[in-house]
């Protein structure tokens, strides 16, 4: 296990695209929260600053961080796809790994990326929270901090879906295209064929709804949806701007269930297919 970890770190940390994407992720996240914190929309009785105070800062930052989940998923697709295109998955089995080891190795990397991202949200959230909250109770600080764990599960979920696509298609560009198409078009279109009650149980919908936007932003978008019945509906839905009926707890359980299912599928595909 330790050697598996060391090997994954050697492979990943020395990979130029990994360094570039993670640097971009870090810089863009910081830039966005800095820019966001400087906007002040004058709505009576509401200030954008509220979004940066404890405990709401956790919800805000988890939501902003979730914008980058697609990026992290694509990164995982590239890391897994490389193992196919360099034929190194094959070579590692020849050298003495099992296919389960290959999957576990990539699982470790997914876990570490999600953990890093969680730490980034936690540290930046703490700093902004302290700056923006004038006086806060210690209880406030942690009352919504469970959202960090929810964000963690969501990031893992996106990356596991990315890995599943990479293992199905075994080709970087095809996997990335199919992954994006699935997120943006395929699942939303399939959802249209089902009743609204069933729609909310689709994996992308479940996983993307784990970190809903702060309430003040959804009020505005809800109105838009009411006005536009029909074609443009799914645009809002696909970017996650529709308030959902399932409670966060149920959504979280379903998300974990989907992740478990995808992990199971990944193992099954890897075991059955030739390398």
């Amino acid at each position: 296990m330790k050697k598996l970890l060391k090997n994954e770190l050697t492979k990943t940390l020395n990979y130029a695209s990994f360094k570039v994407i993670m640097t971009l992720h870090f810089v863009l996240f910081l830039l966005i929260i800095i820019v966001f914190s400087r906007i002040d929309i004058a709505v009576p009785g509401f200030s954008m600053r509220n979004l940066f105070r404890f405990p709401d800062v956790w919800a805000t930052f988890a939501w902003i961080a979730s914008w980058f989940n697609i990026l992290l998923a694509i990164l995982v697709i590239v890391l897994v796809g490389n193992e196919f295109s360099f034929r190194t998955f094959r070579q590692q089995v020849i050298n003495g790994l099992s296919v389960e080891d290959l999957v576990i190795g990539k699982g470790i990397i997914i876990f570490l990326i999600a953990l890093y991202s969680l730490l980034l949200v936690f540290l930046s959230g703490s700093v902004f929270g302290i700056i923006f909250s004038h006086n806060f109770e210690f209880a406030d600080l942690f009352s919504k901090s469970y959202l960090l764990a929810v964000y963690f599960i969501q990031a893992v979920g996106y990356m596991i879906i990315g890995m599943l696509f990479a293992i199905i298609f075994r080709n970087n560009s095809l996997s990335i295209i199919m992954f994006l198409l699935y997120f943006i078009f395929i699942e939303p279109i399939i959802r249209r064929f089902f009743s609204p009650e069933v729609r909310q149980f689709f994996p992308v919908k479940i996983i993307s709804h784990l970190t809903p936007p702060p309430e003040v932003l959804t009020i505005a978008s809800e109105k838009t949806i009411e006005n536009s019945t029909g074609t443009s509906n799914f645009d809002f839905e696909s970017i996650g701007l529709i308030p959902h009926q399932l409670s966060l707890f149920v959504t979280l359980l379903l998300a974990i269930g989907f992740i478990a299912l995808f992990v199971f599928l990944i193992f099954q595909i890897m075991r059955r297919r030739d390398l």
Partner: peptide, 19 residues
């Protein structure tokens, strides 16, 4: 089959750890 972006040493390190 090796990682093109790693050095010879790093590539063999990976093999050594597996074995």
């Amino acid at each position: 089959n090796f990682y093109p972006y790693l050095t010879l040493f790093q590539n063999l390190q990976i093999v050594a750890r597996i074995k």
